[in-house]
Nucleic acid binder design. Structure first.
Lengths: 296, 296
DNA sequence: ATAAGAATGCAACATTTGTTTTATATGATA
DNA sequence: TATCATATAAAACAAATGTTGCATTCTTAT
């Protein structure tokens, strides 16, 4: 990434002038440069979700003779990178402070990656599968995550919203957080996310849910978390990080895996639901198809 | 060269048992591993000075189905070298309609871990450091993340709230999302988070901020994201996952690193701020010190 | 509303790919 | 040397690749 790559820059600079299909192809190439040299054009096109001819058209649009020029360029980049690997690792001409920053960043990121990788232990995987089963069976899923855990709760809820209307996010202003549970019953499940320090309100609501007979799935940070005693299934994530703050990346990863598992229970239904959501948001003009011109 | 390569070892161990032509082919492959994946078999054979059929025969001699197995192996090695485990896990063999939950979970988690690990590339670290510097200089930080990116925006804001009152979260009901920018000026910075598909409103607000002279830091998913053109510094995160949905775990990791870097600028001040926040929340009885007894 | 233009999907095309078959050459053994 | 088994070269083959032309769809401007 450090060395100049004229073709890459050319793609980026001409991106705005491309048609939607050309953009999709270009985006895929930009984001998966190695693949260009390693798979055939047809396969690349399939992975990028465009027609083979679009790849040829992209090459011509970039002023090249054909697709082979694109491949040749990327193959060259790989050759260069492989050979120049050692040289690249050498250059550490950064200022003191920047190096410190880079070092801290690297340590934090490596730590996070390791923590998420550690979630692949069999014990975790079993709990994930069990939790997904339980959530799939539930009539309704109430999602609870306060304070720092709000991000995880909301993300789970948001993704599930794309699949259907099964979840209720327990949140709201004016102390109405728990109101969603008013009509909850034993057929429902509460997905509660809480890490140390545990928000009192979360525990109280989980307790309430338990008394109402709801099943409880917990994402929490320790075997001795108060949620473990309340929950039918508890999935544990570490929250330690090489900084002042706890990390929520592993918890978020867990919630994403749960979403993935739930969607995987009925892939065709999930696909259909996603397409419906797409159409809806499209008709609402929610997403940008191009860089917005100046507002009038 | 560092990782174990079973095929390579097999070639070496069987080398003595090969015929002269087979040896010539094998030697060339051993000495030019990257070429195997980057050129066609016929060209490789020509460069190695053997017949095309010799390559096929070599593959069979090694106990493989055909030459494509050799190429696949070398392509995998390149992918591995370039970006760790990511590409390996990336292979989309969706042949198994309902993959075992454990397997899907493992693949998703490994993919996430690899994506976060890949953020430790020098280019990313530099951008992180630069972004942290810019954010530290700013008078005020406006945080913007809509829809799926809300979780990241909110988490950044929440953590920063523990450190002080520097951030404003651009969010709110009744279409008041952008109101926070009313008193924003050139001394301030906007931290905008948006991934494909890009929420139109996010781009419009970023545009507005730009016109008001704010600095813009972006967390986004591609070099060709519309935010890149608007931003002073763009930090890129991949969002692909082995499920139907995009992942936000790398984006969250980035935001956590930014928080960590900011706190690290003045460790004692950060510590003091955290203690103050602790005391405040303690006096409000926000956190549980024990498992809550039954509510009365 | 309509036509001009661009963008896109589709299918046919020639080429190139990896493989297999056939023929020839090589070399060891009796 | 004669014979046979193996190794190699050459050519034929089906499958795939990248490309192109054409029909259809979608925009955009009048």
């Amino acid at each position: 990434m450090l060395q100049a790559d004229p073709l890459r820059e050319r793609i980026v600079s001409l991106f705005d002038a491309m048609s939607p299909q050309l953009r999709q192809a270009a985006r895929y190439i930009i984001e998966h440069p190695q693949e260009v040299a390693l798979v055939s054009m047809r396969e690349l096109a399939r992975n990028a979700g465009v027609q083979p001819s679009t790849m040829t058209r992209l090459a011509k649009f970039l002023g090249l003779a054909g697709y082979d020029d694109i491949r040749a360029n990327h193959a060259e980049a790989i050759r260069f990178r492989v050979d120049g690997f050692a040289a690249r690792a050498m250059q550490t001409d950064e200022s003191e402070e920047d190096m410190a920053a880079a070092q801290l960043s690297r340590r934090m990121l490596q730590g996070l990656a390791a923590q998420i990788a550690r979630l692949t232990e069999p014990a975790s995987l079993e709990r994930l599968a069990a939790a997904a089963d339980r959530l799939a069976q539930a009539r309704r899923i109430f999602v609870l995550g306060l304070r720092s855990c709000h991000s995880v709760a909301w993300h789970f809820h948001y993704v599930m919203t794309l699949l259907g209307e099964k979840t209720t996010h327990l949140d709201g202003p004016a102390d109405t957080v728990g109101d969603g549970l008013i009509r909850a019953s034993a057929e429902d499940v509460l997905l509660a996310i809480s890490i140390n320090p545990y928000a009192l309100h979360s525990l109280e609501l989980a307790q309430l849910a338990r008394e109402k007979g709801l099943g409880i799935i917990a994402i929490t940070d320790s075997e001795v978390s108060p949620l473990v005693g309340l929950a039918d299934i508890a999935i544990l994530c570490s929250t330690e990080s090489h900084s002042f703050f706890h990390t929520l990346a592993p918890a978020l990863a867990i919630s994403e895996v749960l979403c993935g598992l739930l969607a995987n229970k009925d892939r065709t239904a999930a696909l259909a639901a996603l397409q419906r959501a797409d159409r809806h948001l499209l008709s609402l003009n929610t997403y940008a198809t191009a860089i917005p011109r100046r507002r009038i």
